[in-house]
Design a protein around this nucleic acid. Structure first.
Length: 267
DNA sequence: GTAGGATGCTAAC
DNA sequence: TTAGCCTCCTACG
């Protein structure tokens, strides 16, 4: 689940508890010392940038979390504290909620400078309304990276993962191997706009990626009244007929991740 | 019921 | 470059 939309959603969920005190513990042990340090402090604010989540506690201390591939939060509403299930790195107990975090790639406490350093190495985020792709255009114009690689590069564009990469490129009919410098500025603006639309939809759909949803933009030349059997157009659909042209969807490695695409629609 | 891959990154080598 | 994280989902039987 954890592409940028999931992290934004988590920040929104935590936002409801701003002002509350949390008792922090690390049942698994790996976050024990730092949990003790911040335990019983009030939650001050939340922030999400790309796939990184920040929870600010009193004293300008930030818990920085990156879920990686497996990481997950489990929310238990109510006053009873449930038994720990699995390897829980961080348990936060508030007035009316218990939140368990397991399997993150990163869970650490940072000060303001540490947080700034993370922001500094992340690119523009389609879910941060103040961000735009305009300042990145000069870099894109001279980049020889294929766009399928650029979209996953968190230091340039933050928040897009492997599912959204495949779906964004398919919806716009872009060949993933085209060079970043080969796209016009307007094409990059379209990529940005589509990224925004899809990630925002992911937040609305409770963190589920559902790019074929009715209200979303459709690929060009989509036959009328097409019925979809899945939540994505090409992601994880190797060998299945493309919904537009019936060509078999291809699978191929690009930037160390499995890319799915239609060689006809994305010629 | 079980096996295996994955929406991703870090740290060790 | 590779192992590790340690969970969830899907495909298979």
């Amino acid at each position: 689940m954890p592409e940028g939309h999931s992290i934004r959603r988590l920040a929104d969920q935590w936002e409801k508890y701003v002002g509350q005190q949390f008792l922090l513990a690390s049942p698994q042990g790996r976050f024990g010392t730092q949990a003790a340090l911040l335990s019983a402090k009030r939650l001050i604010s939340t922030d999400a940038h790309g796939k990184h989540l920040f929870l600010e506690f009193e004293g300008k201390n930030f818990i920085h979390i990156h879920l990686g591939l497996y990481g997950a939060f489990r929310w238990h509403h109510g006053t009873s504290t449930p038994a720990v299930r699995g390897a829980v790195r961080l348990r936060a107990v508030g007035d009316n909620v218990t939140v368990d975090l397991s399997g993150p790639t990163v869970c650490e406490v940072l000060d303001e400078n540490g947080k700034s350093a993370i922001h500094a190495r992340l690119g523009v985020d389609p879910l941060r309304s103040e961000d735009s792709i305009e300042n990145l255009l000069p870099w894109l114009k001279q980049s020889s990276w294929p766009i399928g690689k650029t979209l996953l590069e968190q230091s340039k564009i933050a928040g897009i993962g492997n599912v959204y990469r495949a779906e964004i490129l398919f919806l716009l009919g872009l060949n993933p191997h085209r060079l970043s410098s080969d796209l016009s500025e307007d094409e990059w603006r379209e990529v940005w706009a589509m990224s925004r639309i899809l990630l925002e939809a992911g937040v609305r759909h409770k963190g589920r990626i559902f790019t074929t949803a009715e209200e979303l933009p459709k690929p060009a030349n989509l036959p009328l009244e097409t019925k979809f059997s899945g939540r994505t157009y090409v992601y994880k659909r190797t060998g299945e007929p493309c919904v537009v042209c019936s060509t078999a969807v291809l699978q191929q490695e690009l930037a160390s991740r499995t890319l799915y695409w239609c060689p006809t629609c994305q010629a």
